[in-house]
Amino acid sequence: MAVTTSGHLPAQAEHGQSQLPWYIRDLYKYLLAFAGLTAIYIGLRLYQGAYGVLAGLDSTEPAFQTYWMRLFHVELIFLALVYPALWGYLWLSRDHNLDEIAAKEELTRYFTLTMWISIYTFAVYWAGSYFAEQDNSWHQVAIRDTPFTANHIIVFYFCFPMYILLGGSAWLYARTRLPLYAKQISLPLTLAVLGPFMILVSVGFNEWGHTFWFREEFFAVPLHYGFVAGVWFSLAVGGILLQAVNRMIELLDKIEDMP
């Protein structure tokens, strides 16, 4: 057992005051997270539109330092604050009474875990779909004279750490609040978080290859296959779904049905 017993989470006591059905009590937080992330990602894209061509074409220009390297440093500071804050919160607020958890409460937490994973996949969308392919577009018009190009600063050093943060948060949420995940380690959940994490590590190989091997932007080449193998592991989300459904069926049998 990964956690010990000493108290209940505050959320359990608060539930009942909301107008929402008990099983989706975290819906507003979930929607708020979507809205917040959407604002951040669209804001970054608008920033690229405003300052990409203006100051992002040549890293030796002073304007590049002002508009792009400063953004890079702001991102690092933001991530350095958010990582320990979120993961620390999830760990410190863990449930110490997992052996006594009620069926309804456990069902609710499966909904919340699904919301965490959903937010994680939303971040994967921005990192793996939009900003990743936009890299190809930008490198057709900019001089690739630095690993910190106007798109790399967003995709590699913000989007990738952001989805790792959220994937890690989903893993920690499950580990600290759901009995099955606390007793043992879920293999599919771990694969779905660790595999895409390796995409960030592949950035090192990518930049090395683009420095010493070739500077062009040819996407379908072995230099990029580290990213590809990493993203295959996201298919493990199917296993998480199956684990959740199996347990939720058991839990549903334990509660009374209501009209």
Partner: peptide, 29 residues
């Protein structure tokens, strides 16, 4: 309600993951 949550999850998962896979294997074609 769980079905709807999974639908949203799957939508972004497969846009993100499958698109990255395709961009880096088929990519330029």
């Amino acid at each position: 309600a769980f079905d709807y949550l999974i639908l949203v999850l799957a939508l972004f998962l497969f846009i993100g993951a499958f698109h990255l896979h395709m961009a880096l294997t088929v990519g330029d074609w």
